[in-house]
Computed example of a mutant assay.
Amino acid sequence: MTIDVLVRNNVKVLGSGSQTIVFAHGFGCDQDMWRYIVPNFMDNYRVVLFDYVGSGQSQIDYYDAYKYSSLQGYAQDVLEIMKALDLRDAIFVGHSVSSMIGMLASIQSSNYFRHIVMLGPSPRYVNDLPSYYGGFDRRDIDELLEMMQMNFIGWSSYLAPIVMQNSERKELTDELEKSFCSRDPHIARQFAEVTFLSDCREELEQASVPTLILQCSDDSIAPVEVGEYLHAHLKNSRLQQMTAKGHYPHLSQPEETSRFIKDYLQSV
Rank of each mutant, 00 (worst) to 15 (best):
D77P: 09
D64V: 11
Q72D: 14
L87Y: 01
D77E: 15
Y74M: 13
V93S: 04
E80Q: 13
V78T: 07
D77T: 08
K83H: 12
R88P: 00
L85N: 02
S70R: 03
A84H: 01
I101D: 05
A90S: 13
L79H: 01
D89T: 00
M100T: 14
R88T: 12
V78R: 02
I91L: 04
Y62E: 10
Y66I: 12
V78S: 06
K67R: 15
Y63M: 13
I101C: 09
S99C: 15
M100A: 10
Q72T: 05
S70P: 05
Y74P: 01
G73D: 04
I91T: 14
K83M: 10
M100S: 13
S98L: 02
D77G: 07
K67T: 14
Y74W: 14
A65S: 15
S98F: 00
I81L: 05
Y63Q: 15
Q76F: 14
Y62T: 09
Y62F: 15
I101W: 05
V97W: 09
A65D: 15
S69K: 04
D89M: 03
Y62H: 15
D86T: 06
F92T: 01
D89Q: 10
S69T: 09
D61V: 13
V97S: 07
Y68R: 04
A65W: 04
A75V: 05
S98W: 04
A75I: 03
M100K: 04
K67L: 15
Q72Y: 14
I81N: 06
F92K: 01
Y66A: 11
D89F: 05
Y74E: 08
Y68I: 05
D61I: 12
Y74S: 07
D89W: 03
I91Y: 09
S98Y: 02
G94H: 04
Y62M: 12
Y62A: 11
S69P: 07
H95M: 03
F92Q: 03
I101N: 10
A84G: 06
S99E: 01
S99R: 00
D89Y: 08
R88C: 05
E80G: 04
I101G: 06
I101K: 08
D64T: 14
H95E: 09
E80L: 04
D77S: 11
M82F: 11
A84L: 02
A90G: 12
D64Y: 12
I101T: 10
L71T: 08
L71N: 13
S99T: 02
A75C: 11
S96H: 10
Y66M: 10
S99G: 14
S70G: 10
Y63H: 14
L87W: 00
A90R: 02
L87G: 00
I101S: 10
G73E: 09
V78I: 11
L71F: 08
A75E: 07
Y62K: 11
R88Y: 06
A90M: 02
I81Q: 09
S69M: 03
F92D: 02
A84F: 04
S98T: 00
A84M: 06
V78H: 06
L85F: 11
D64P: 09
Y68W: 11
I91D: 06
Y66F: 13
A75M: 07
V93G: 00
Q76R: 05
Y74R: 05
M100L: 11
S70I: 02
K67D: 03
K67F: 07
I101F: 08
Q72R: 08
R88I: 01
S99K: 00
L71E: 06
G73F: 03
D77Q: 06
V93N: 01
M82L: 08
L87Q: 07
A90L: 07
S69D: 15
A65F: 13
